[in-house]
Nucleic acid binder design. Structure first.
Lengths: 253, 253
DNA sequence: TTGGCTTGATGACTTAGATCAATTATTGAG
DNA sequence: CTCAATAATTGATCTAAGTCATCAAGCCAA
């Protein structure tokens, strides 16, 4: 747990990297002056990689940082009163985890690595201070939180109104969009989560996820090989999902 | 639509009221210096009341303000591709609507009054500027957005994992908490939304909402008289819901 | 390489909640 | 106040998806 490096960074080679990080355009999609990126960079701690199954933080723990995923994938989840896990989100590189902890100063969810995962730790109090000095950073933070609200509400629509086919199709297309945004193939990718985790997230039984995917494959919509997914008929998939798999129906950049 | 009053306020008697507003402790639950409250007050516009059914803003419209509900109730909703309405939230006095518009600079949802409703309009650009000068206001904003994320995720759990009884019970207790927080009875209140709207919000058919409420009444959990609800057996209701009807399982104040 | 363990696929059956249909309350416009 | 329109309740089916059970396929440890 303790990071041996005295300056509290995982590896000195990893310091001062926001400038070079291929994710910064997503993680910081704003024109920060070099000097400002540097200041942000100063407060960020790169942590040692988490192994599959390791926890980043636990539900109820005191909140002090948000985390940007650099590589790998995380899931966040609640343990419900009946003891079952409810997954509330999956986090891919460039995405920020932990924002829900700000309000109560405790994380309301746990975060666990689905595979070997590295994150940048951003102490929130520092980030908040810095945001006072860099208005564009503050605005970026508001935007990120607003987007999260937006995305979660789309998820609410999905859970409340969509049937199993639409849920699975939405899920796959949502991942596709996220891969594409990071410069990967939008049509061919590997699922880092199990069928069980997909079902849990989508409010479906494992068997249903499995059946839907099999049927999608039979109908030539996708090709499934274990965790490897290829989207064969993207237009048809999009038709299935209906309009907005993303936050707004209108695309603004 | 246009506000006749030249200073763009509904009524001069309504200006400079944050200090007096009974909601400010909820709307601004922070120790703002008098002077700071004044500055916030300056940027707020009190609008003329909305009549039942009137829109506050439309999905797709340009975002420029968030709104604090003063009296009445609002709902926010999406129109899905298939043309049906999906309600994403209900907003009671002291609650803030419109935060999801920050990201894309357009409201991703529409907001409509469920009854005669008054709101304070808070131009976001001003609020953001002001938040640079008043750190506690900035922090409060982060907290509000974080809480919204938290609440929405609880809603996702509700939609994904709960059965009809649990959904309806959660909904009623959630309202109960919100009324209580504003100093009203936690056990006796009037629903400003129709059964149809409740069902839409909870991912249930109207008939199911109706049946569940009837059954709750038969079992002595609640008393229903049209839109008037009394919670008779609060402990049993809470048991039904399970643990967290609120954001975190742990209550911090 | 084997054998235990987890994950995924598939079939048979059950069920919670949707849908359809009919009836009774409420509401509100004139 | 009256009557049409709308909302809510209630009952009778129907169905999408859950549950249970079994089997196949990876996958790692020894």
């Amino acid at each position: 747990m303790a990071i041996s490096n005295s300056n509290n960074r995982f590896n000195s080679k990893l310091t001062s990297q926001c400038q070079n990080c291929s994710l910064s355009a997503l993680c910081l999609p704003i024109a920060l002056a070099d000097e400002d990126v540097n200041r942000l960079d100063q407060i960020i701690e790169r942590k040692r990689p988490l192994k599959k199954g390791e926890m980043l933080f636990h539900q109820g723990e005191e909140f002090d940082s948000v985390f940007a995923v650099r590589t790998g994938t995380l899931k966040t989840f609640n343990i419900t009163n009946s003891g079952e896990e409810q997954i509330t989100g999956f986090y891919c590189p460039s995405e920020l985890v932990g924002l829900s902890g700000i309000d109560e100063n405790h994380y309301p969810v746990s975060a666990k690595a689905l595979e070997t995962t590295t994150v940048c730790e951003i102490p929130f109090s520092h980030l908040e201070q810095l945001s006072s000095q860099i208005p564009s950073l503050k605005h970026q933070l508001f935007r990120l939180m607003s987007r999260k609200i937006c995305d979660d509400q789309q998820m609410m629509v999905l859970l409340g109104k969509k049937n199993a086919d639409e849920k699975v199709a939405s899920f796959l297309l949502n991942l596709s969009h996220r891969f594409k945004k990071r410069g990967y193939s939008a049509t061919s990718f590997r699922l880092s989560m199990s069928r069980g985790e997909i079902g849990n997230y989508l409010g479906l039984a494992v068997e249903t996820v499995s059946r839907v995917m099999t049927r999608f494959q039979k109908n030539g919509l996708i090709d499934v090989d274990g965790k490897e997914i290829s989207i064969i008929n993207l237009p048809e998939m999009e038709k299935l999902v209906g309009a907005a798999g993303e936050c707004a129906t209108i695309e603004h950049v």
